[in-house]
Nucleic acid binder design. Sequence first.
DNA 1: CTTTGTGCAAAGCGTTTGCACTATT
DNA 2: AATAGTGCAAACGCTTTGCACAAAG
Lengths: 171, 171
Amino acid sequence: MSLTSTDHDFSLESVEVASTPMQRFEEYLQSRAKRMTQQRRRIVEHVFQQHAHFDADDLIDQMQKTAGGKVSRPTVYRTLGELVDAGLLVKMTLRGRAVYEHDYGYPSHDHLYCMKCDSLIEFHSKEIEAIRDAVAEAQNFRVTGHRLIISGICEECSRAARRPNRRLDLI
Amino acid sequence: MSLTSTDHDFSLESVEVASTPMQRFEEYLQSRAKRMTQQRRRIVEHVFQQHAHFDADDLIDQMQKTAGGKVSRPTVYRTLGELVDAGLLVKMTLRGRAVYEHDYGYPSHDHLYCMKCDSLIEFHSKEIEAIRDAVAEAQNFRVTGHRLIISGICEECSRAARRPNRRLDLI
DNA sequence: CTTTGTGCAAAGCGTTTGCACTATT
DNA sequence: AATAGTGCAAACGCTTTGCACAAAG
């Protein structure tokens, strides 16, 4: 990579080697003497076709119904772990279960989490990163990352709750 | 940060009814027609004797060794749940296990989490709350709370890692 | 042909639950 | 006496593992 110019205002895209998640995963596998299998390939293809949060069960179900048929539960778990190691996915825990989302090629962000419908809304804030780094600095703490989840009720769900003729949760 | 409004600087202490965690828990139990038992009393006494993060196993072990003998696992779990309902403890999840800390009478805060020694360092930032509220506002999201965990390596652990003659993790 | 990956079944781990017995009210 | 709580053992839900067979290099 040749950054010969004087100004530092370069776009990431021009610097990065253009590589798809699949290519990157292949590099990762090769670097560890692991193998590209049909299952791994199909999972990567499927996961990076959409940008959504999902858990292991979602993925198992979706693999079953779409692209080429079932992948076993252990293989799904193992592959998700590798995709995290490879830096392609990030894992977080919500309500005690692991939830995954794209990491590679996707800007870092935080989440609003609706406790009613379980949805996640992404947002980014440079200020939070600045505060994070300042706080850590003050404690001589070496930051590797952070996770901020703002919990509450999303617009849609609070609207639904306000509707007069909604289904009542009475005994 | 725009705390531009007129002077809202009142102290919480002067407003609250002076009551200990135990008193508050008793009120909570009465309001729900639940009973104050020996086990519950001993757990509350023990938990509020120190300000530390702990999980169910910690508590079970500590109850065993100290104050009055063993409390069963199910009772510990049940009581922790009630203390959370009562607003005395907050629960968070770290490495897939539930961790508790004081809530009642303790200012809200966020955490630096050392991935090496598992310790939590507390800090408070009004700015984060302001950002949280601004982000939520923009999405018409009704906030009930947030959780920010900054992960990394604490000062002590990075010092340890830098020491030349440290115990090596070799095979 | 060697080595890694897969799928099955079974185990693991933290947490919760059904139930007979005990304690609180 | 009536009712809620305890402790045991067993179940739970998500995730991981041991192992024989299949597939990739």
